[in-house]
């Protein structure tokens, strides 16, 4: 009976999957043009922007979460303005989790795509331009199809990384059941309550999803890249 209760409470898993899907889609939309722009040439501005995008890789998630909490608090600055003008509240809400996930997982989307675009010979773009094609047409018809394996890697890494977020989502979203209580927080909560069976169910589901995704990338990229996570 106790076991049945755990299996039925899958809201944190659905919430996590929803968060990962939305964050990955948003990052794909944001990440493709940004990665393309970053891949072309170097300037001080680009270096600084790239460093900012890369920061979540090295920064403790709780630090990032703390700054987001301060920045989007409805009592001050941007958070207050957003709340008063658009009635949007990022702190302790699902939107806040999406915002934090997009920022936190950004290097996982942009890094592989930028790197793959830089590795393509410049002559491919030049050949397309010489046929009268615009930069946009060249990106869609020539560049993007030729970085498919890296694109898939970026999507899967972003999705899997969002699934596993803990510190940053806890800081900005808290632990509100059905709203911000994602699977990683549910695991922590269950362990705190000494409910190892529930923690095991959540952990096993997260482990299975990520394992299947990583295996799929390895199989898809087996013959295309030297390293499946290139």
């Amino acid at each position: 009976m106790q076991q049945r209760k755990y299996l039925m409470d899958l809201t944190p898993i659905w919430l996590t999957l929803k968060l990962a899907c939305i964050a990955t889609m948003l990052l794909l939309i944001i990440g493709l043009p940004v990665a393309w722009w970053l891949s072309k040439g170097r300037s001080v501005f680009k270096i600084i922007l790239e460093a900012i995008i890369t920061m979540p890789l090295v920064l403790p998630p709780s630090v990032l979460g703390f700054y987001l909490l301060i920045a989007f608090s409805p009592q001050h600055g941007i958070g207050k303005w957003l709340h008063q003008t658009f009635n949007i509240q990022f702190v302790f809400s699902f939107q806040g989790l999406v915002l934090a996930s997009v920022i936190y997982s950004m290097p996982f989307m942009i890094g592989p795509i930028k790197s793959a675009l830089q590795q393509l010979p410049i002559a491919l773009s030049q050949a397309s331009y010489s046929l009268g094609k615009t930069k946009r047409q060249t990106f869609i018809h020539v560049l993007l199809p030729n970085i498919k394996p890296s694109l898939l890697t970026a999507i899967v890494l972003t999705f899997a990384h969002t699934l596993g977020e803990f510190g940053v989502v806890l800081m900005i979203g808290g632990n509100i059941p059905n709203v911000t209580r994602v699977a990683s927080i549910a695991v922590y909560d269950s362990v705190e309550e000494m409910d190892y069976a529930a923690a095991n169910v959540y952990s096993l589901i997260l482990f299975s999803i990520t394992f299947v995704m990583v295996i799929a990338v390895f199989v898809f990229n087996k013959y295309r890249l030297k390293s499946p996570l290139e």
Binding site: P121, L124, A127, S130, G132, T134, V142, N146
Partner: peptide, 20 residues
Amino acid sequence: IPPQKRMAGFVFQNYALFPN
């Protein structure tokens, strides 16, 4: 004038064919 407007046919030494 950018290359797109010049539309000069170009045969690259290493061909630069589109792998896709």
